[in-house]
Computed example of a mutant assay.
Amino acid sequence: MLLANAACGGSGFDSTPPAQRSGPASLQILIASSGEAETTAVTGAATAWAAFSGNTATVIPAQDLAQQLGQAFAGGIPPDVFYVEAARFADYVSVGALEPYADKITDVDDFYPALRQSFTYHGTLYCVPKDFSTLAMEINTALWASAGLSPTDVPTTWEQLTTTAQRLKAKGITPIVLGNSRDRIGAFLVQAGGWIISDDGTRATADTPENLQALRYVQALLREDLLKYPKQLDAGWAGEAFGRGEAAITFEGNWIEGALRADYPAVRYTINPLPAGPKGRGTLAFTKCWGIAARSRYKQQAIEFVEAMTTGRQQLRFAEAFGVMPSRQSAKDQYIARFPADRPFIDGAAYARGPVNAPKMDSVLSDFDTGLQQLATADPETILARLQKYTQAVLSG
C-alpha cells in the first residue's frame, strides 16, 4: 500500500531528471516528530542553517509520514528532505524515490556500520542515519531485590536468563514481559546467529537451525510462564507492564526512559546489555535516515542541509533536546559522558542488526508477527517455514 499508486504503470515516477536550481533554495522538510521537543529542536536547527546559508527551510511535522510521502511521490511533488524509516527504505529506493547522496557527506564512514547497512541497497549507501535506538534489558530494582537478587545476578547469557527468571517466578514475580513481534523477539534470532534474509538481501534465511533454536528458546520461556506478552498482563506494551511493576525484566529501547519518566516516575530500574545467545551478543537497531527526493530541484542545497544536521555537535544537541542517540561513532564518548546510564544502548550499535532491508515485505513480516503472537502453542518450524516461503517469493519476484 505504501507506494501503490506511485507504482502503477512501471515505477510510477517520471524518469526525466528535474532541472536543478543553483540560487537560494526553499527547502521543504517533512519529519515524523516524536513530540513538541523534537519539532522545536529540528525547526531551530533548520532556521539556524537557513540564516547561515542564505536559504529558507520549512519544517513540516507529518501526521502520517508513510501516507504523506506516498501521496507526495505519486503526485510528483515530494518534499526535498524527509525522514525515512529503515523498515521503509527499500520500498522507496525500489521505485526510484531517493537520491543516493551519502558519498557526498563528510566522513561517511564515521556512521555506525550497522546503521549504514540499513540504508544500503544493491551495494549503494543512499542516505545517512540521523540517529538510532537499540534494545537493552531493563530490570526493576525493587522487584529484583525482593527476590533476593543482587547486581551480580544480572544475566549475561540465555542460560543465566532462564535461571534468574525461575528464581523470580519462585518468589511470585512475573520474570519477563516482552513485546510479541519481530521487533523484540528478533533479537533472539540475532543472538542465535540467524536472521530473516541474507546480508546482501537476495535470499531468505528464515528456516535455519539458528532461527529455530531462538524461537524454541522463547517458546520455552513462554510455556514455563517465565515470559509473558503485554496483553497477558492487560498492558498495551511491555513498558506499561514494567512501569506498573508487573514484571521484573523487559527488553526495550531507550524510548522507555522518557515513557517511564512521564507515566511511572517512581519506578527505579537499571539498564543492561541483552543476554548473549549461542553465537554471542545481539540486539536490534531502529533508525531513520535523512532522505533527499530524487525529484528535488535543490539537491545540492539539500545535501548541505543534511551535512549540517548530522555533524557530531548537532547530533549531540538533538540528543539533549529529545533523547535520541547520535549515529556518528565520534560522538559516542561525549554522549556517554552526558548520559552514562545509556551506555548499554549505544554500545549495542557494535552488535546490532537493522530491520529487514528488502522491498514489499510488509505483509510477509506482519504474517510472521501473527505467528509469533501464537508462539506458546504453535510449531516454530511451521512459523519459520511459512516465513521462508513468503520471503523468498517476494525476493524472487
Rank of each mutant, 00 (worst) to 15 (best):
4 A>S: 14
6 A>W: 13
10 G>T: 06
13 F>M: 14
16 T>E: 11
17 P>W: 08
18 P>R: 05
22 S>K: 07
32 A>Q: 14
32 A>L: 14
39 T>L: 07
42 V>R: 08
43 T>Q: 11
52 F>Q: 15
56 T>M: 03
58 T>N: 06
61 P>I: 07
75 G>I: 15
77 I>V: 12
83 Y>L: 15
85 E>I: 05
85 E>N: 10
87 A>C: 10
97 A>H: 03
98 L>H: 09
98 L>A: 11
102 A>W: 00
106 T>N: 12
109 D>L: 11
114 A>F: 09
114 A>C: 10
122 H>A: 11
125 L>P: 14
129 P>I: 09
130 K>V: 09
132 F>W: 10
133 S>C: 13
139 I>F: 13
140 N>F: 02
144 W>P: 02
146 S>N: 12
147 A>I: 14
152 T>P: 08
154 V>N: 08
157 T>L: 07
157 T>W: 03
158 W>N: 05
160 Q>T: 13
166 Q>E: 15
167 R>I: 11
170 A>E: 15
178 L>E: 12
181 S>R: 11
183 D>W: 12
186 G>D: 13
187 A>G: 11
190 V>R: 09
193 G>I: 03
202 T>W: 00
205 T>D: 01
208 T>K: 00
210 E>H: 07
211 N>R: 00
212 L>K: 02
215 L>I: 01
216 R>T: 09
217 Y>R: 02
225 D>R: 07
228 K>T: 06
231 K>W: 15
232 Q>I: 04
234 D>I: 12
240 E>Y: 01
243 G>F: 04
246 E>K: 14
252 E>H: 03
261 R>P: 07
262 A>F: 00
270 T>H: 06
272 N>A: 04
277 G>L: 05
281 R>K: 06
282 G>W: 00
282 G>F: 00
289 C>A: 05
289 C>G: 01
291 G>R: 02
301 Q>K: 06
304 E>P: 08
308 A>Q: 13
311 T>E: 08
311 T>Y: 09
312 G>R: 13
315 Q>F: 02
324 V>Y: 01
325 M>P: 01
325 M>W: 01
328 R>D: 00
329 Q>W: 01
329 Q>H: 06
336 I>K: 04
337 A>S: 03
337 A>G: 05
338 R>L: 01
343 R>C: 10
349 A>E: 09
354 G>E: 00
361 M>Y: 02
363 S>Q: 02
364 V>N: 03
370 T>C: 10
371 G>C: 12
371 G>T: 13
373 Q>Y: 15
374 Q>S: 12
374 Q>Y: 10
379 D>F: 12
382 T>V: 06
390 Y>K: 10
392 Q>L: 09
393 A>N: 13
394 V>H: 12
397 G>W: 11
397 G>P: 09
